[in-house]
Design a protein around this nucleic acid. Structure first.
Length: 395
RNA sequence: GCGUCGAUGGUAGAGCGGUCAAUUACAUCAGACUGUAAAUCUGACGCCUUCGGGCUACGCAGGUUCAAAUCCUGCUCGGCGCA
């Protein structure tokens, strides 16, 4: 069971800074949660993650269930000890895979859309998709071997109990931004039903209240649905809340604000799967405490790194002879040891160290950004910090 | 020297009379990526274009044909075999 203390609120906004205490250590919020889906932060060792002062790692129920299986992880004492991460941990419920392996499968639909008109009337299953949602749960066809598996709120709780993270999520359906309103509404009722089932089942497993359970707010881009979800789930005895689902790129802060204005103030709020600098600023301002995102590590592996002046793609020709660090003055391992030219060479030569070095830098960048944002809440320079950062990064 | 096989775009390597500026892979040049199906995916990749098309190309030179990267002849270069 976690303990959440709010230490500072920023007047005129929903933003707050605080501390979450878990059995495995505390998290100073707002905080970025490092993603280690399969009990591994891709391309990185746990020691490297630790050296970046990451505070908390999140793994995934669906992936660890398929491989190596929850019982093996349980034998190791949970996914944290299994991967040699001894700080606070979280697991996602598998609800996102209802989207990524379902409606989004084989398409280029992102849960964050720039197209406000992106609505498909047809929600019939996409050909070849690996997830099918019913009221009972989600039927998955393993992306590894094609075998079939039914995930329910109950089974998700059982698996997450075995994975033994400090904080876990209720089983939910992450809807697509292209789903019509009627579908989102229906899905929201289902997610509520699953939240109650998750809560009840988890209570029966975790009799000593070791794990904290977060409910997940859905509702897509619709204010009425978001607010309805915040009211109904907010009334349930969750230990915290995840805010998931689909957003419009320009409006994430607004949508999150609708929800956080209603959710109980004394419980932590985790914005699921969001991690671009602009979005982090806006969501902190709108009252979020935790963020997890694959972007730093995935983009790193794909050759893109953060700089204060925006992203750069190290695969571009211009970097092959650039013997400066990724970011002048950056204190990360990558920047204090290597040049752009070297890392560009590693990418071209297909050396896996390229992804490692870029991931280290990107994670460092985002983790330090969150620390700076937190500090700016305490000294009340948040607004000016936000403005100057964004002006430079997105110029 | 004789015989034989081969010579295709940055590279490898398809094509073997028209639908070929030429499959594919790699390389190259860009782009995308937000609770990880992702060390992935997408686009461009002869020259010019008023985007309709035009021009030059499959070792070189001729030839056959309405039509040749594809067939024939000679040459040049290379692999292999025999002397």
């Amino acid at each position: 069971m976690l303990k959440f203390t709010i230490q500072k609120k920023l007047e005129g906004t929903l933003a707050r800074a605080g501390v979450i205490e878990t059995l495995n250590g505390s998290i100073e919020t707002p905080a970025f949660v490092t993603v280690g889906t399969k009990a591994a932060v891709k391309a990185m060792t746990a020691e490297q993650v630790r050296s970046l002062n990451a505070q908390v790692v999140l793994a995934n129920t669906y992936h660890l269930y398929l491989q190596p299986g929850p019982d093996i992880v349980a034998q190791a004492g949970g996914f944290g000890p299994f991967m040699d991460w001894h700080g606070p941990t979280m697991t996602d419920s598998g609800g996102f895979q209802a989207f990524s392996l379902g409606a989004a499968f084989g398409s280029n639909v992102s849960k964050v859309t720039r197209n406000t008109d992106a609505v498909l009337e047809d929600v019939s299953p996409v050909k070849g998709q690996l997830a099918k949602v019913t009221d009972e749960g989600v039927e998955f066809k393993s992306h590894i071997d094609g075998s079939k598996h039914l995930f329910t709120p109950e089974s998700s709780m059982e698996i997450q109990w075995k994975l033994a993270a400090d904080m876990i999520f209720a089983f939910d359906e992450c809807t697509s931004p292209t789903a019509p309103y009627e579908y989102q509404k229906k899905s929201l009722d289902r997610t509520y039903d699953w939240a109650v089932r998750s809560l009840n089942h988890h209570e029966s497993l975790d009799t000593e209240k070791k794990q904290s359970l977060f409910g997940v707010i859905q509702g897509g881009r619709h204010q009425d649905l978001r607010e309805h979800a915040a009211r109904t789930l907010g009334a349930l005895p969750f230990d915290g809340y995840g805010i998931g689902g689909s957003f419009t790129k320009d409006d994430i802060g607004t949508a999150v604000g609708w929800v956080n204005a209603i959710l109980p103030e004394d419980k932590p709020r985790h914005l699921l799967g969001i991690g671009e600098p602009m979005d982090l600023f806006n969501a902190v301002e709108a009252g979020c405490d935790l963020f997890d995102c694959i972007a730093p590590t995935r983009m790193g592996r794909h050759g893109t790194v953060h700089t204060p002046d925006g992203r750069i793609n190290l695969k571009n020709k211009s970097f092959t002879t650039d013997f400066t660090p990724l970011v002048q003055g950056c204190t990360c391992y990558t920047c204090t040891h290597h040049t752009r030219a070297y890392i560009a060479h590693l990418f071209r030569a297909n050396e896996s160290a390229a992804g490692t070095l870029a991931s280290i830098h990107n994670l460092h960048f985002i983790l330090r950004l969150m620390e700076s944002i937190r500090a700016s809440l305490f000294d009340e320079t948040f607004q000016s910090y936000k403005q100057s950062f964004i002006a430079r990064y997105y110029k």
